[in-house]
Design a protein around this nucleic acid. Structure first.
Lengths: 211, 211
DNA sequence: CTAGGATTTGTCCAATCGGTCAAAATTCTA
DNA sequence: TAGAATTTTGACCGATTGGACAAATCCTAG
């Protein structure tokens, strides 16, 4: 008998392992070539298996990409979720910037995968943006606004502040080539993330000190 | 006689017009689908001509993309070139931020084309980054550093400051879908660029006031 | 140790892609 | 307005792509 396609969910040990292996390989390929630029053969080779074997675990290229993207968003939003209304405003913001820079440093492929999707108009996660991202950002924006009203944080538009933090931190993952080219060989070592973190923190937090 | 391919340079009126028409169509297609995601047929259709006709004006898909990218870089660097060592530091920086936000608003496709190229590791303009971009940035970084030493500008790493300005402004073009989704229908009108400009200026310039 | 399911792969297919070519249509020029 | 040069296109080609299928191999429970 032909085996039922295991695409519904991981059952056996092998299925869990292979599915994970495929996602890792796909992340590598999708993040550097984009969805259409990536081929199933490339992903299969990166995962060390044949193309039909890969398609045994995921029904289509679409499904791999979609799985990757949906799984990513949670990880991606975690740093913002951690921003707590109870903490000290400046400390909380500093922590948020830190966590975002660390993600750019430790998960650049995830960042580029996400950037690729956004550049193309979010055809596959568009709905998630309004259903998950927007509510979370609105909630945290409210926290920021309360801090500002309480005089514990300089006044600025909370949404655009969050955009600015996203943009500056993710820049070091998405535009890595450019950053490295501009900094030159001597300053483009791994320390660039530490330098970036300090600069971004100083820029934003200096301007946001209550006055 | 068979006509010589006009790919060497624009000669007749028709050639100039059609070449421009093709570049416009190609910008639209490349910026939303990336290089590999775009097809010659799509570009040809967007330009209102047949595929062989398009290939009469440009020898290959590569050549169109490359032309677009090289032509773009000059436009793209213009705002930074305008930053003058003679002017008032804070006014100069404010002007630079303004110009960059205006470019994100008026030329979002160009921004996305560039972002796409960067995301993929700048395979086609990598050399231009070190030959043109780096020297320019280094020159302007020196200007910023002089201002800082003279006490006319708060101290921070000039390179990372420039990165931050790039990131925050281009974010509104490259991540437009996300920005719109988060701001919601009511705040996502054209005014969002004006709001963004004010927020970014306030954030950066407040923190950079000499103290 | 063996039967039945799970896993793997070689082979194939239709669609799409970038690009060619020769012929047709149009435009320019003398 | 005739003839030459330029511009346009239909038809075609080889390569690549996403995916299907059935046969072969592997694993594991009884």
């Amino acid at each position: 008998m032909t085996a039922e396609a295991p695409a519904t969910g991981p059952n056996t040990r092998i299925q869990r392992e292979k599915r994970e292996l495929i996602l890792g390989a796909a992340l590598e390929v999708f993040s550097t070539h984009g969805f259409r630029g990536a081929t199933i053969d490339q992903i299969a080779e990166a995962a060390g298996m044949s193309k039909p074997n890969l398609l045994y675990y995921y029904r289509s290229k679409e499904e791999i990409h979609s799985t990757l993207l949906h799984r990513l968003l949670d990880t991606w939003l975690a740093p913002l979720r951690e921003l707590s209304a109870e903490g000290d405003p400046l400390k909380e913001l500093r922590g948020y910037i830190r966590r975002k820079i660390e993600m750019a440093r430790d998960f650049p492929r995830e960042s580029r995968l996400f950037a690729n999707e956004m550049l193309q108009g979010a055809p596959r996660v568009g709905e998630m943006l309004t259903r998950e991202l927007k509510p979370l950002v609105d909630e945290k924006a409210k926290v920021l606004r309360q801090w500002m009203r309480a005089g514990k944080l300089g006044k600025t538009d909370p949404h655009h502040l969050i955009f600015a933090i996203w943009a500056t931190t993710q820049h070091y993952a998405d535009f890595d080539v450019q950053v490295r080219a501009v900094l030159g060989l001597d300053r483009a070592g791994e320390g660039r993330f530490e330098d970036a973190a300090r600069s971004i923190e100083a820029l934003f937090l200096e301007g946001l000190r209550p006055r």
